[in-house]
């Protein structure tokens, strides 16, 4: 069991606006001290950004009023800590396999 400090949230965005939302969110996080520590925009995940945060993401927070940010994905915990997305799942996005290695030889 890893010693993790934060939770990962999936935020819904307009299609094609993932990077813009992430960059605006990063700026807001720096200004307002919301607990966001990192943001991931995986190429394979259309219409979502993943946010690592030390505090619960509250869409009522004025700092999160961002164009093309549609909402936070709510749901039952996927891991033992009640997180929507487990850190193991996040790791897959952090270290994407090169396409060539997923093709079996033979």
């Amino acid at each position: 069991m890893e010693d993790l400090k934060n939770s990962i949230y999936a935020l819904k965005t307009s299609a094609g606006q993932e990077r813009n939302v992430a960059r605006l969110l990063a700026r807001k996080a720096n200004e307002s001290g919301v607990g966001i520590t990192a943001i991931i925009v995986p190429e394979s995940l259309k219409g979502y950004v993943l946010v690592e945060s030390s505090t619960k993401i509250d869409m009522q927070n004025p700092a999160l009023k961002i164009p093309h940010l549609r909402g936070v994905v709510e749901g039952k915990g996927a891991d033992n800590n009640g997180n929507i997305i487990s850190f193991d799942e996040v790791k897959k996005f952090l270290k994407p396999e090169p396409i060539i290695s997923s093709i079996k030889k033979g």
Partner: peptide, 13 residues
């Protein structure tokens, strides 16, 4: 893929 690190000291990622 884009990764934005805001607070490296407290980020698990």
């Amino acid at each position: 893929g884009l990764l934005i690190i805001i607070d490296p000291e407290s980020s698990d990622i």
